[in-house]
Write a protein that binds this DNA or RNA. Structure first.
Length: 274
DNA sequence: CGGACAACCTGGTTGC
DNA sequence: TGCAACCAGGTTGTCC
């Protein structure tokens, strides 16, 4: 479920709770969620290590461990990382429990089984391809309107699909791509290379604005997303078009429409986004 | 390069 | 109540 603002919200909470904690027993209820290396190798390499830092790149959460290894997690559509007490009832789809030295748990819960963990060595051995090829952080200094203009130049693909390409920009997903295009006033099916300099400028600003505001509100909860303490994100009340098909555009009142391409829905106002 | 599609899973909603 | 169809916040690979 989570896109960048949701993962960042989880990161901030876990940073408060986990820095300095040591991982004790790793309860691997379903080994398949360890994507690299094998579960057999994973457990001894993680057990006993302390958590020294918690970083985020795009939608990846990265634990820096005292052994020099890093532990990367991707939650995909429905993954949750929950910091709980030991006696908290276990959600049905709990797959991994990291027992911590203060008696608490870090639990991985994933209803759809898409997410998983990667243990990365000091030499980057085991790094998932998606993490190695990520584009710039949308709130970082490398993401300038110049960068965006060069990334879109001569590209025939639809702007919506290009915004979802993590190699171009790290962290946007279906919700925020639709919202950014709405604020920038750009139709999602436009060819990326056809955008004017002014439109690219608006899009660049919209991306930063939407992500900053969403992080401030703890991300977007539609159905199932909750943060590391089980709390919902409040940005859903600010959504302009995402999953609002048939409802009024907040700008002009025209009913929001939905198109499907690239196997996903795009929501937009046909009046404001030409 | 671009576009369509399937695959990986479970569960909620909608419509007949 | 039952059942089928469709939907879902992501990514990867294949095929044309």
């Amino acid at each position: 479920m989570p896109e960048m603002p949701e993962v960042e919200t989880i990161r901030r909470i876990l940073e408060q709770r986990l820095i300095g904690r040591r991982i004790g027993r790793v309860e691997l209820l379903a080994p398949k969620f360890i994507r690299h290396p094998s579960a057999k190798e994973f457990i001894p390499r993680v057990t006993g290590s302390a958590i020294e830092g918690l970083e985020r790149r795009g939608k990846y959460l990265i634990f820096r461990l005292s052994t020099g290894n890093r532990l990367a997690a991707h939650l995909k559509m429905a993954g949750r990382l929950l910091y709980t007490s030991a006696d908290e009832p276990r959600h049905k789809h709990t797959h991994i429990i990291f027992h911590l030295d203060n008696g608490s748990h870090l639990r991985y819960v994933d209803l759809r089984h898409f997410g998983g963990f990667y243990l990365i060595g000091p030499d980057d051995c085991g790094i998932p391809a998606g993490l190695a090829t990520l584009g710039p952080e949308p709130l970082g200094s490398a993401f300038t309107s110049d960068y965006l203009r060069q990334a879109l130049a001569c590209r025939k693909t639809k702007i919506k699909l290009l915004l979802l390409d993590q190699r171009v920009l790290a962290g946007l997903g279906n919700i925020y791509a639709d919202e950014c295009l709405s604020i920038a006033g750009i139709h999602p099916a436009r060819s990326a290379g056809d955008l004017t300099a002014e439109e690219i400028e608006r899009l660049h600003k919209a991306i930063r604005l939407v992500l900053e505001r969403s992080i401030e509100k703890g991300g977007t909860t539609f159905a199932t997303y909750v943060d590391a303490e089980g709390k919902r994100g409040l940005f859903a009340e600010d959504l302009r078009v995402y999953r609002r098909t048939g409802q009024s555009c907040p700008n002009c009142g025209t009913p929001v429409e939905r198109l499907r391409f690239g196997g996903r829905s795009s929501h937009f106002c046909p009046q404001c986004q030409k």
